[in-house]
């Protein structure tokens, strides 16, 4: 039997140090992992007192039973539980630029599964922000990077990364989301000039954005600049890791260790918690910016993982 675990961060914009980049770190998943950890810790604390009143615990957050601060809904376990009543934006959706970035984490996933994951992820964002449509969906495929001593090098290395045969069918299948009106524009992440050329040749759906990671040197390789210009694709900057939620990190987050949430059992022990193989599937990052004021009102992440019987 397979169970889906949905992790969430809540709104991280005012959550302090976890959003500040460490000195010299040009890409990191620190924002995601520390805000997941914070959100779990806060949920435990919030529910500790009420749990204590019910005689379930001594009021110390670390002891709060998992069942109190998580929520099970069919095959889905929400870690922590989400109160959708707290969601929504302060003004009507038309005032915002809403960008989501979807990271596919597992390789060897069929395009239909990926579309399913995308729909799950998008519907969580829709519910959280109470919106119908996102302005931009950026797709990040696994195994991609745009790294090297300089961007020239990055572009060269990039050409051989990822797997076109997995990516192209997924990309094409996502067009449906745009037709359904869930997504206004589609973008791609970490596509160098060669990969982008191949995508443009073979797919009907044109990205409006290619999001790349840049280090100190601001020289984007000219072939990519020209290609983007020719096809009206905006080259945007990001500082995310492609492998934003590695398996080991997730297990540590949810495990029985001192930093763990105590949701998962330790392997090969008698410790409490869920058992099985936990495989991260996707992460969605959402950002809602008040368009004509440049103010970030809401930013957060959901992550989806599958728990399979070991």
């Amino acid at each position: 039997m397979t169970k889906t675990i949905v992790l969430s961060t809540g709104n991280v914009v005012s959550s302090g140090p976890s959003i500040i980049r460490k000195n010299g770190a040009y890409r990191s998943n620190l924002e995601l992992t520390s805000s997941l950890r914070n959100n779990i810790r806060e949920a435990k604390e919030e529910f500790a007192n009420t749990a204590a009143e019910n005689g379930q615990t001594n009021g110390n957050g670390t002891q709060t039973p998992v069942s109190v601060w998580t929520e099970e809904d069919g095959d889905v376990l929400y870690v922590p539980r989400i109160n959708w009543q707290y969601g929504g934006l302060q003004e009507e959706p038309s005032q915002y630029d809403i960008t989501v970035k979807l990271f596919y984490l597992a390789t060897g996933t069929s395009s239909s599964t990926r579309v399913k994951h995308t729909r799950e992820a998008l519907s969580l964002v829709q519910k959280e922000l109470r919106i119908q449509q996102v302005d931009l969906l950026i797709i990040s495929f696994p195994g991609m990077s745009f790294e090297g001593d300089c961007e020239w090098e990055a572009d060269k290395q990039n050409a051989g990364q990822g797997n076109d045969e997995e990516e192209l069918p997924t990309w094409s299948a996502l067009e449906l989301l745009q037709k359904e009106g869930l997504v206004k524009n589609m973008g791609i992440a970490e596509y160098g000039s060669e990969k982008l050329t191949r995508l443009l040749e073979r797919a009907a759906l044109k990205p409006t954005v290619d999001q790349i990671n840049i280090k100190n040197c601001c020289n984007v390789p000219p072939p990519l600049v020209e290609l983007a210009k020719k096809h009206n694709i905006e080259l945007l900057v990001h500082t995310d890791c492609t492998d934003i939620l590695p398996k080991g990190t997730l297990r540590e987050l949810l495990g029985q260790g001192p930093q763990g949430a105590g949701v998962l059992a330790d392997k090969g022990s008698n410790s409490p918690g869920l058992r099985g193989d936990l495989i991260p599937q996707w992460v969605i990052k959402y950002t809602a910016v008040v368009r004509d004021r440049g103010v970030i009102e809401n930013k957060g992440y959901f992550a989806g993982a599958e728990l399979r019987d070991a």
Binding site: G10, N11, G16, N49, A51, N54, E71, I82, W84, G87
Partner: peptide
């Protein structure tokens, strides 16, 4: 940064669930 952040989306739901 605020010591406590603005309303989290993780909270109670329904009348029977615990109130933070």
């Amino acid at each position: 940064f605020p010591a406590v952040r603005a309303p989290r989306s993780a909270g109670p739901s329904g009348a029977n669930t615990p109130v933070p």
